[in-house]
């Protein structure tokens, strides 16, 4: 069986959940191999983690010559690894960085690229959600080695014992790949809440919060969910851009999405329309968000949310 390369999603060696989802998907297409681009000293530790999700091989690409630059060196490393292993497919996390690595790699190796897949079946048929979630598209790569970027939450990680054999891979990084330098990097502070991409429950606030996110955060915490926002709230400077949901923010597909003080513009819907259950709280009964809801409250979020938070906390006892 051919190998399927999975680019490990990690922050300073801490493996992130999408990696396990990708390994699970990779097993449908061939034999999962993890590719860890990071300090080689961390290779063994990463291998211990990814072998639990079926990684047979773990290619460790030391990042001393890679980490100071934007995406191009990573694409080169993957190109060289692809040439060595002739994989059946290459799976990459669908982050901003992942998509750009995939883009460069696709041109380098002359292979088709599919971005933002929410599912990949055996045979390599991908599912994407497009036009603001209004359409589902199935596609396939028809040229070269399929390169597929996969969105978080696209598969439930399945434990499977892999050999996890570590193989150091020395990539040669060219000078042209080292031209966009990372001059400074400031890690994002954790909010202590679940990651927006991964959360089962998301409570989001919009312009209707008037800038006070406390009611939104309170309900999110009572339900153990993440906090999100509309662009209007982000543009007003009330909350950081990383919390924005929609076309130019994150796409989420949680079990439960609660929109408070959000009108439901198409660009916002693009980021949340595929959520399983949708609830809205809005003063205006004509707000388009109500067209999408499983349950809605026409009312002032400033009173509805805090009272609901109290009641939820009470019930939980």
């Amino acid at each position: 069986m051919s190998e399927v390369l999975v680019l490990v999603d990690h922050v300073d060696g801490a493996v992130r959940k999408p990696t396990y989802e990708l390994l699970t998907i990779a097993a449908r297409l061939g034999e999962p191999s993890a590719v860890f681009i990071g300090p080689s000293a961390q290779g063994a530790e990463v291998a211990e983690k990814v072998k639990k999700y079926g990684a047979q091989k773990v290619y460790v690409v030391d990042d001393t010559e890679i980490k100071g630059y934007l995406v191009a060196p990573k694409a080169e490393a993957l190109q060289q690894l692809a040439e060595k292993t002739s994989p059946a497919a290459i799976l990459i996390p669908s982050s901003v960085e992942g998509k750009e690595i995939g883009a460069r790699l696709a041109i380098k190796i002359g292979s088709g690229l599919i971005t933002d897949a929410v599912d990949v079946e055996d045979g390599g048929v991908t599912t994407q959600s497009v036009f603001a979630g209004n359409y589902t598209v199935k596609s396939k790569v028809t040229q070269g080695t399929p390169i597929i970027t996969v969105k978080p939450n696209s598969a439930a990680p399945q434990e499977a014992e892999g050999a996890g054999t570590v193989e150091e891979f020395a990539a040669t990084i060219s000078d042209v790949a080292k031209t966009a330098k990372i001059v400074a990097s400031q890690p994002r502070k954790s909010s202590g809440r679940p990651e927006l991409n991964e959360a089962a429950i998301v409570v989001a606030g919009g312009r209707g919060t008037g800038g006070d996110f406390a009611p939104v955060e309170g309900l999110a915490d009572a339900l153990g969910g993440a906090v999100g926002a509309s662009r209007a709230a982000v543009d007003s400077g009330w909350i950081a851009h990383t919390f924005q949901i929609g076309q130019t923010g994150k796409t989420v597909s949680p079990q439960l999405y609660i929109a408070a003080g959000i009108s439901g513009a198409i660009q916002h819907r693009a980021g949340m329309q595929t959520s399983k259950t949708i609830i809205a709280v809005n003063k205006d009964e004509e707000a388009p968000i109500f067209e999408l809801v499983d349950f809605g409250v026409v009312g002032d979020l400033k009173s509805v949310l805090p009272t609901a938070t109290e009641k939820v906390t009470e019930r939980k006892g």
């Binding site: 359409y135 199935k138 009964e285 809801v293 409250v297 026409v298």
Partner: peptide, 17 residues
């Protein structure tokens, strides 16, 4: 291979506070 329109979500109960 295929494009399918997602069925529109049907509106659930909306209550007035």
């Amino acid at each position: 291979e295929d494009t399918t329109e997602r069925p529109p979500r049907s509106q659930g109960e909306v209550v007035k506070d």
